[in-house]
Amino acid sequence: MPVEIVATERLACGYREGYVLEDISFTVNAGDYVGIVGPNGSGKSTLVQALLGLVPISSGSARLFGSRCDNFSQWGRIGYLPQSLHLLNPIFPATVAETVALGLLSLKRFPRRLTRQDRETVETTLDVLGVYDIRSKLIGELSGGQQQRVLLARALVNDPELLILDEPTAALDPETRERFYHMIADVNRSRGVTVLLVTHDTGVIGQHASKMLYLDKRMLFYGGFDDFCHSPEMSSLFGEHSQHLMCHRH
């Protein structure tokens, strides 16, 4: 019996201008690696933000770990890496270690103080993600790739069961991007962390994802990776060449 991690039923989100998302129903089970793809403006980011309670739900329902998203409180089980990294204030004086430590707040109750053990956890995570050497640098002084790794460390430091990544590689060069995806895949495989990944990198996603969700305001496809590759509908949407590239596992 698979354990349900994320589930939505007829989920719709929207603003005054109309729905951005409509009629979204899907279930993600423990250990799944779901690639969320779709054209620009198809509502991919809105979907993950709705799941995290960052944008309001208009109708339908969404659950995380069995409890409704609008009063979800078990944040310690989630790691999140947002898309809007450019919104980070470049003069913000936090070090890499301080930034990563913020990820532990979700495990704390008021007053949120960090212990020595927490500092050790932070150092271990920094080490695992290969950013230990730059732990005293300011976040604003790092390259895009380094920043992204630090924020991944921040998302993973609380040892989450669900990792939600929103276009995490937008600012990265191809080589860094490759390494980054390997890291995610490793987290998924070795620790059994469920992954929701919003991406444009259809070429890379094929190497790792176990399930695909194709979104264009409505959910046009949700299912296993192999079904996705053999779906004639997806083939017509992507073009056969792209579908082949995506589905050709190395």
Binding site: L52, W75, Y80, P82, L87, L88, A94, L102, L105
Partner: peptide, 9 residues
Amino acid sequence: FNEELARVS
């Protein structure tokens, strides 16, 4: 640091 990240924490 970042309000969105703070909320998800």
